[in-house]
């Protein structure tokens, strides 16, 4: 899965004195385990499940939608059920899929916090949770998109989706030109996280 931005530092956490937040995490974890509320292996399993979730999941959904019109129709009608068809664990996530077309571009934001379809895309990037992205995307989406290098044709309408409540969103990007002969796996490799958030086109 290609990353969409070059700087991608690892934030070190075990090479200095423990921070207040780290001490708090250790204390909560130890106490919950001692009280029998959770177990160390349950915590580990949750972290491993988190690590297993990445934009590759979302990309599989998009590639299937591009190659199977009936699947795309089901995805647009009930995003959650369609993803489960592909064996993706959706948990409590309720999905609405949004299709980009020649005349419409969709972009996702959460102005109130940072709701994100984590089962399909993994954990969100920092910029998605930033004040700038949350504030401006609903007011000047075209300017925000330009900052991601995305210049939309004048004739294309923009639909901004604010994840205000219980649904989560996934953009179905337009299938790149010249991809007619590619296999579903090769198509999935073309799909980027940022394309599925809607800040870029493919």
């Amino acid at each position: 899965m290609p990353h969409d931005h070059a700087p991608h530092p690892y934030r070190p956490d075990q090479d200095g004195p423990l921070t207040e937040a780290q001490v708090t995490e250790i204390a909560i974890r130890e106490l919950l385990i001692e009280k029998g509320i959770t177990t160390a292996s349950e915590v580990t399993a949750e972290v491993e499940a988190m690590d297993a979730r990445s934009p590759a999941q979302g990309a599989r959904v998009i590639a299937r939608a591009w190659t199977d019109a009936d699947f795309k129709a089901r995805l647009l009608a009930d995003g959650t059920a369609a993803c489960e068809e592909l064996g993706i664990e959706m948990g409590t996530l309720k999905l609405v899929a949004l299709e980009n077309t020649e005349t419409t571009h969709n972009v996702i934001v959460c102005t109130l916090c940072s709701c994100y379809p984590r089962n399909l895309l993994g954990l969100p990037p920092d910029w998605y949770k930033s004040r700038a992205y949350r504030s401006r995307t609903v007011k000047e989406p075209r300017a925000v998109l330009r900052e991601f290098g995305t210049r939309l044709p004048d004739k294309m309408a923009v639909r901004v989706h604010d994840s205000t409540a219980d649904m989560r969103y996934l953009v179905i990007p337009s299938r790149p030109e010249g991809s007619d002969t590619l296999t579903e796996d090769a198509l999935a490799a073309l799909v980027t996280r940022d394309g599925m958030i809607g800040v870029t086109q493919l």
Partner: peptide, 29 residues
């Protein structure tokens, strides 16, 4: 925050540290 004045979107991200993932895991559990 919707509609507030704010600066450019800085395309920052980082790989989450283990303690951050554990916080997330404890919240989910």
């Amino acid at each position: 925050m919707g509609g507030d004045l704010a600066g450019a979107v800085v395309p920052e991200e980082h790989d989450y540290a283990l303690w951050e993932k554990r916080v997330d895991a404890l919240v989910m559990l």
